[in-house]
Design a protein around this nucleic acid. Structure first.
Lengths: 191, 191, 191, 191
DNA sequence: TATGAATGAGGATTCATTCAT
DNA sequence: TATGAATGAATCCTCATTCAT
């Protein structure tokens, strides 16, 4: 029974993911999702609290993929610290551009004080990843940073702030380069 | 009597542009636009046929900026043909990523047979621009292309096809590089 | 000046009459009327307090035509009293079917306590007409009626009540026949 | 789960019919209909595509009543052909006067190419009815008509043309008499 | 006085969510 | 648990009326 249910949950979520991939949140109707998943409309509500909740689950999967991907990319230290920073910023920015809705949902969650622990845990993993790269740079003598754990926090915030309040989010690449540049310069050990 | 005021039209359009920049079409209410522009709700409809029409006007301005920007960037031939192609693809892709709604509107317009001449004219300018870059590459001996005017048509179509039917539009940069690579290889003169 | 103004008032009213003739009150826009009359939209409001007021003016003209037409039809007593009653009922019913909106307006006017004297005067004329026909029938010995002035009042009321509260107003002719029959029987002198 | 209920559909439709009977299409609010039917506003849209669609359903019922009524009236040939023609014209004219909106809807349907087969089928029945009456008159020697099936088509068209383009539709009876007269004269066998 | 741009109340329609079965 | 009919809040758009010029 449990297995069957999980199967159905996954079917719904993947149907929804497919639709959200090519159309905006507001352009996908719950009817469409249910039809694509081959279930009744009411069934979706058995597995997800709301349309937003369903969307959130998809976003979380994306976030997991991002963090886990970065983790395996960086764990063997084959990348220089600078390259590591760039990979991280690029990953975050790509994710953010693909899911601009995520910030709104975060705010909603914060407002309702319900950001689930799994988000918090995964975010912690990401920050640890960033911090580790910075520490490598410091250890190697390239960089100086008395508080890598703070710097780690800046990175997602920088992307977020641009997308939320900044200019029209036209060009991810430009943002990435700017962010990387600023970080690298900021970490640079100067005489 | 008051006079239909181009200044006011611009005020409404720029207010709307500001809002569409940070939120999706369906998340911006007409009331918000009117309020932001400091006019009554009905006034918006004096200047624009519908919310979509207003959005379209903004998209068109963006398209004009793209084409005119490319034009002035390319007119002095300071860029190599390959660089020119990259600049063009990058511009188109950035524009398309920033305004994914545009393709839907295009289809709507085509369905209703009302693509205004100004869109057509501007598109023609863009194609001429592309064609000119290709011809430069051919003339310089780098490239071969018996039909530059056809190739010119492919470029916007490639971006469009990916965004419309392709994978989730996550990463503009990747698409740009792929498209440029394909084009440059295709134009290469081979023995 | 006065003449010019009156000319324009008439132009607006007749333009409106033309449009109301073939379309329902709510299907005719003030823009249409103004355009048809060749004046600005605001100008209509210089001559009429509202769209309803304009409509009312047209209805009144129709009412005048009805009453005056009946008056000249009946003044030479060439019709028998029974024929007279039928002509009157028919005229009222035709008018009422052509302008179902009139009752609503009457109610509006009554609610606001503003039924203009000209309506009252013209209505009085109609009642006098009816009363006169009845009195002729009484005098000739065909009919009996101790209060012709009351009976006169019933006639418009009967049509009105059917149209306002009755069955769907499908068939004017049936209503006319029924009303006439009822009246003639009621007036009949019985032994 | 609740079942799409024909009973409820009928309840909504009859509530609407009641309201449209005494007030014009534009004067009846969907909220009113829903309230009168004792359902939520949205429920109306579960059973009818739009307010117009709902209205159309009512008009169709009226049309069915007209045709079926005429059919049973004429099937025993107790009426003379001339009386039959008059009954038919009268029925059509009454229907048309009661539902002037119907022509506009027909045009809408034609424009969208969606005149449902049930309308077409019922119309065919009406035409067959007319044709049959004419053939009776021909057979009896009263009339001559080499193409009764064409003549049958004229009858609804005549009423329609007057209502659509003609004078203000004041008096159904006059139109009926004129139409009948014209038809009878036209069919008359002349030496 | 004449005009038409500006306004916002009013109404049709959509769609996420609820709930009876 | 699964379903889809029922619901009404939310939102776009129309159009009578106002008002600045």
């Amino acid at each position: 029974m449990q297995v069957l249910d999980d199967e159905k949950r996954r079917r719904i979520q993947s149907a929804a993911a497919r639709m959200f991939a090519s159309r905006h949140f507001h352009e996908v109707r719950l009817d469409d999702i249910a039809a694509e998943a081959g279930v009744g409309k009411g069934t979706v509500y058995t597995y997800f609290k709301s349309k937003e909740d369903l969307h959130l689950a998809i976003l979380f999967d994306g976030f997991v993929a991002l963090v886990d991907g970065l983790k395996s990319e960086l764990e063997d230290d084959s990348k220089s610290p600078a390259e590591g920073i760039e990979a991280i910023v690029r990953g975050i920015a790509d994710y953010a551009y693909a899911h601009p809705h995520v910030f709104g949902l975060m705010r909603t969650m914060e407002a309702r004080g319900t950001k689930p622990p799994k988000w918090i845990a995964k975010r912690k993993e990401l920050l640890a990843l960033i911090e580790r790269v910075i520490r490598r740079g410091v250890k190697s003598g390239e960089w100086q940073d008395p508080h890598p754990e703070w710097t780690a926090n800046y990175v997602p915030a920088m992307v977020r702030s641009v997308l939320l309040f900044g200019a029209p989010p036209k060009n991810a690449e430009t943002l990435i380069r700017h962010t990387v540049q600023l970080l690298l310069n900021g970490l640079q050990k100067h005489a």
